[in-house]
C-alpha cells in the first residue's frame, strides 16, 4: 500500500481537477449515492443500534455502581458521535462499498472495458472515479449521522431495560443533551468525510491497477478493504489529535 501512496495521491489530485465535470456526471453521482446510501442504510442502523446498546451495557453498570449512572447518556453520546459511529460505519462501508468499487472497476480493467473507454477519449477518472468518490463523500457522513442518532436510541433503550442500569430514558437523554454539543457531531462527520475520501480513492485506485484475471480482481478487492481499514484507523488517531487541538483553541 505505502509504495503506491504517490500514485494514490496523484489519482486523487486528478479527481480534484476533474471536479468541474461534476454537473455533467450528476446522473452517475446519483446512481452511486443510491447504491451506497440507500442499500447500506438498514445495515448501518442495525449496526449502530447494537453498538449504542453494547456501550451502554458495558459502561452502565460500572457507572451505576459508582453512583454516577446519570452520566451514562453523555458517555454513550460522546463516544458514538466522535468515535464509534464514524469509525465503525467507515469500516462497514469499506467492506461493503470499497470492495464493490474495487471489484467493479477491477473487472472493467481486466475485461478491457477501461481500455475501450480510453479509445473513445472518455477519461476513466471522470467517468468512473469522480462519481464514486463524490457519492461516498456525501453518503458516508449522512449514514454516520443516522448511525449516531440510532446508536443513541440503542444506548437509551438498553439503559432503560437492563436491570443493572435501570435509568430512565429522560435521564439518559437529558445528560446526553447536556454533554454532547453540535460540534461533537460535526467532529464525527468531518472524520467520516475524510474516511470516505480515503475509502473511495484507495478502492478506485486498486480497481484501476488490477492485473490478471478473476484472481487479480479478488486480490484487488482484498487489498482495497484491508488498506482502507488500516488507513482509517491510522488517520483516526491523527484526526482525533488534530480535532482535539482545534477544539481546545
Amino acid at each position: 500500500m505505502f509504495q503506491n501512496i504517490g500514485e494514490i495521491l496523484f489519482m486523487f489530485w486528478r479527481t480534484l481537477l476533474a471536479m468541474p465535470q461534476v454537473f455533467r456526471q450528476r446522473q452517475k453521482v446519483f446512481e452511486q449515492l443510491f447504491e451506497i446510501g440507500n442499500r447500506s442504510l438498514l445495515m448501518a442502523c442495525i449496526l449502530s443500534l447494537f453498538i449504542g446498546g453494547v456501550v451502554a451495557l458495558q459502561s452502565g453498570p460500572v457507572l451505576v455502581e459508582r453512583g454516577i449512572g446519570n452520566a451514562l447518556g453523555g458517555l454513550v453520546g460522546i463516544s458514538l458521535a466522535k468515535e464509534l459511529a464514524p469509525v465503525m460505519m467507515s469500516v462497514l462501508i469499506a467492506g461493503r462499498i470499497g470492495s464493490a468499487m474495487a471489484a467493479e472497476i477491477g473487472s472493467m480493467r481486466v475485461y478491457q472495458e477501461i481500455d475501450a473507454l480510453r479509445t473513445m477519449n472518455i477519461n476513466p477518472i471522470h467517468y468512473l472515479v469522480l462519481p464514486r468518490i463524490l457519492a461516498i463523500s456525501v453518503a458516508l457522513p449522512t449514514l454516520v449521522l443516522f448511525a449516531i442518532l440510532v446508536g443513541w436510541l440503542g444506548g437509551g433503550f438498553v439503559s432503560v431495560v437492563n436491570h443493572r442500569i435501570a435509568i430512565s430514558f429522560q435521564t439518559f437523554f437529558s445528560n446526553l443533551k447536556e454533554v454532547v454539543e453540535v460540534k461533537d457531531v460535526i467532529n464525527g462527520l468531518i472524520k467520516s468525510f475524510v474516511f470516505a475520501v480515503m475509502i473511495g480513492t484507495v478502492s478506485c485506485h486498486q480497481g484501476l491497477t488490477t492485473i490478471g484475471g478473476p484472481r487479480g480482481i479478488g486480490r484487488s478487492v482484498t487489498k482495497a478493504v484491508v488498506n482502507s481499514i488500516v488507513l482509517i484507523l491510522i488517520a483516526d488517531y491523527y484526526l482525533t489529535r488534530f480535532l482535539l487541538v482545534i477544539d481546545h483553541d
Binding site: 467493479e104 475485461y111 472495458e113 481500455d115 475501450a116 473507454l117 479509445t119 473513445m120
Partner: peptide
C-alpha cells in the same frame, strides 16, 4: 476506434447505451 478481442462492451450498460456512449459522453 478499436474493436477489442472480447468486444469490451461495458457490462453495466445496455447495448444501445454502449453504442451511443461516445456521443452521449
Amino acid at each position: 476506434a478499436m474493436v477489442f478481442q472480447s468486444g469490451a462492451l461495458l457490462s453495466s450498460l445496455t447495448v444501445g447505451e454502449n453504442v451511443g456512449l461516445y456521443l452521449a459522453e
